[in-house]
Amino acid sequence: MFDPGPAAEVAYTAAKDGRWTLRFVRDLRHPPERVWRMLTEPEALARWAPYTADRPLERTGPAVLSMIDGETPHPLPAEILAVRPPRLLEYTWGEDRLRWELEPSGDATRLTLWHTLADRDFVPKVAAGWHQCVRVMQLDLDGTPHPPVRGQGALAYGWAELEESYRKTLDL
């Protein structure tokens, strides 16, 4: 049984370029250095993220992030724009832009994701997807790993209910 955990703190705003930015915040009981590795190391990303990486995301420059749905990877070009370990990682993923900020809080981390995308209607969908993925990351960090929840398989783990909940929270 997959426990999705509590709702994340979310909000969205209009981006300067006419797109939309989701702000997704989750508190993790682990130091930024451990969370950083989950965000940058290909082996760690494969355990929780909706994509795999062709290289460590620890330096700027081009990369390929392959979205996973079932057994089929869908490669998307990425550009790593900013790397400030263990506090900031920013990159493009296809047409989207992701900015991960890690703020230390004692031995814990406040993880904030800023995900900029084109379609406002996708904001609650993206929030639901990140909710599931970050929950899997959290379980992995806690030492109780769960297989990745991504692609069409996410529907079996309460994605539709999460999407509806975030749609209401975001008033969309």
Rank of each mutant, 00 (worst) to 15 (best):
P73T: 05
A108K: 08
A63Q: 00
W93E: 08
E101Q: 15
M67Q: 11
H74E: 15
T72H: 09
P50S: 09
P50C: 09
V35E: 00
R99T: 10
A127L: 00
Q152S: 15
S66F: 00
T21L: 08
A156Q: 13
D3T: 15
R47S: 14
L139D: 13
L162D: 03
R47T: 09
T60W: 09
E71W: 12
V83M: 05
A118M: 14
P77A: 13
I68D: 06
D69L: 07
A15D: 13
P85G: 04
P75K: 09
L57D: 01
T169Q: 14
W130P: 01
F122A: 15
E103C: 09
A46I: 03
V35L: 08
P85Y: 02
P4V: 11
L22H: 02
G106D: 05
R120K: 14
H131A: 09
L102R: 01
R167I: 07
W114L: 15
P4A: 10
V10T: 08
A154M: 14
R26I: 05
P4F: 11
R19E: 07
E79F: 02
E95P: 05
D54A: 05
F2H: 11
A53I: 00
E95C: 13
D140K: 10
R87I: 01
W20P: 00
G18V: 06
V126S: 04
A128E: 06
V123P: 00
D121V: 11
L111C: 07
L139M: 13
A154T: 12
P145G: 05
R37P: 02
T13I: 12
V83R: 03
A44W: 00
D171W: 10
E9C: 14
L45Y: 05
R99W: 07
R97C: 05
P31A: 11
E43Q: 14
L28N: 02
R47I: 01
H131K: 08
G158V: 08
A63V: 06
L81V: 10
V64R: 07
T13R: 12
W130N: 01
R84L: 11
P56L: 01
R110E: 10
A156K: 15
A82Q: 12
D119T: 13
K125Y: 08
V10E: 07
V35I: 07
R97T: 10
A78F: 00
Q138I: 04
L89W: 00
Y12C: 06
Y166D: 05
I68E: 07
S165C: 11
